[in-house]
């Protein structure tokens, strides 16, 4: 499914946070959104997934989602957003319960998603019994279980420690190699953008405008350390000054 963001502008209580965003994302593409704090990247993700109404502009889609997709636009949240009273399996099943599936179909889908995310042995565990990385795996399994056309990831690894982040990046790449789909990935971590994305959209400081769109030509599967480091450096040069200014602003504000 292709997505086109057309002239999206957003204000919070009169404060302009996004200004005239125009962006086309192609089927099967992974696009990272980076930018200084407060540039509106999460706001843009909220608008794309229909959790926020833009003040102006619209998001249009072209092409039908895969037939078995139950929730074409599906989020993975920064804080995992798991129901603490439900087991891993029941958290994943939550996304299916209001759809007309047989108990068996539901069970099969849940088991498949758990296997894909390496949670097979943790189906009966409660979120509090899991590490941060495992909790986010549940978040990812819950997103995959509905077979989304577009996966919207809102800083999915930023609540995790550095090692867990590395592990989950590897896991995301191996899942994505198997599961087709379009992905929009918001992050403030340039390393994640350089490793996971096909294109990186750099937003300017508030109000967020598209500053540059950087295409990474090497496919993610064969992307070596040198390419990633070079890309990371290039992205940092693009946002460095503004990130410094944004940081001072946050501290004073």
């Amino acid at each position: 499914m292709d997505i086109r963001i057309e002239g999206v502008t957003h204000r919070y209580d009169g404060l302009l946070v996004l200004d005239g965003i125009e962006l086309a994302i192609g089927e099967g593409e992974t696009v990272a959104l980076v930018g200084p704090s407060g540039c509106g990247k999460s706001t843009l993700l909220g608008i794309v997934g229909g959790l926020l109404k833009p003040s102006a502009g619209r998001v249009v889609t072209a092409g039908a989602p895969r037939q078995d997709s139950l929730n074409p636009f599906t989020y993975v949240f920064q804080d995992f957003a798991l129901l603490p009273w439900r087991t891993v399996q029941a958290n994943v099943a939550l996304a299916l319960e209001h759809h007309p599936l047989s108990a068996r179909q539901r069970q099969e889908r849940v088991e498949e998603a758990l296997a894909l995310t390496g949670l097979g042995d943790f189906a009966q565990a409660l979120p509090k019994q899991l590490s941060g990385g495992m909790r986010q795996r549940v978040g990812i399994a819950r997103a995959l279980v509905v077979r989304p056309a577009v996966l919207l990831l809102d800083e999915p690894l930023s609540a995790l420690d550095a090692q867990t982040r590395e592990i989950l990046m590897e896991d995301l790449l191996s899942i994505w190699a198997r599961e087709r789909g379009t992905r929009l990935y918001v992050t403030h971590n340039l390393d994640e953008a350089a490793r996971l994305a096909d294109r990186v959209v750099v937003l300017s400081r508030r109000p967020g405008r598209i500053r540059e769109i950087v295409a990474i030509d090497t496919p993610v599967a064969t992307r070596g350390a040198a390419v990633i480091a070079g890309m990371r450096e290039r992205l940092w040069r693009l946002i460095r000054e503004e990130a410094r200014e944004a940081e001072r602003e946050v501290q004073h504000g």
């Binding site: 959790l51 989020y75 129901l83 939550l94 819950r142 509905v146």
Partner: peptide
């Protein structure tokens, strides 16, 4: 947490 409600909405729960 509002985020749990937003999560449920994002999955289209009635």
């Amino acid at each position: 947490p509002r985020n749990l409600i937003r999560m449920a909405q994002s999955f289209g729960l009635p």
